[in-house]
Amino acid sequence: MSTDRAYPVPAPGGESTLRIVWIYPDLLSTYGDRGNMLILARRAQLRGIPVETIEVRSDQRLPTTADIYLIGGGEDGPQALGAQRLIADGGLHRAVAQGSVVFAVCAGYQLLGGSFFAKGTKCAGLDLLDLHSDRGSTRAVGELAGDIDPRLGLPPLSGFENHGGRTHLGPGVSPLARVTSGIGNEGITEGAWRGKLLGTYAHGPALARNPALADLLLRWATGVHQLPPLDDTWSERLRAERRAALAARA
């Protein structure tokens, strides 16, 4: 997985196209979640990597051979329904076993764990990440920022969160970040990762504000050590502007 390759980059499985699946946009698409798919596709294409994006509705079978799976946010009802259908489908488990990348935000992040609460009921999750979620006493709404696990080698996380859940991590996962502003999992840590699975409460188009995180997912998916840099002027200005807004508030 750690060899540098020439471009264009072949995706795993011997195919030349990077396949990105957006899981259940009919259920889990609340906060501009489409953005993550668009951003990953664009950043791959700019590196000469051909991309296929696939939107899989909740009444369709999940393909098991894609390179990246995305799960978005949603209300309680659709979240519970989405989890049930993903468990019944079994496709995501097979894809993960084969080494696919999963990036999940908000409700999608919660349902990767062992259990979560929706409409006051404890629901079974996919058990792909060693974590479980319950309800907090307050809703976490606002800017979310944190210093990302140094092993991932990324600049600080910048995002927006809006959730009523609190997430408790088990020993089988690492926090994605240490919270510097906002709540994240429980006010101290934010998100979680293990292998090539990564979840965050930075909802919606989290990758718009975190292009380096988008590139990490692309590196995981392609096995390429270093991707050619892109012009991220506008993302950098956005990050700086958000940082300044947080500093002004502090």
């Binding site: 906060y31 501009g32 979640d33 489409r34 953005g35 668009l38 709404v141 606002g142 927006f160 809006n162 909802h203 919606g204 188009p205 718009a208």
Partner: peptide, 8 residues
């Protein structure tokens, strides 16, 4: 306060 909708 949330601009996520721009991607919708």
């Amino acid at each position: 306060l949330d601009t996520s909708w721009l991607f919708d």
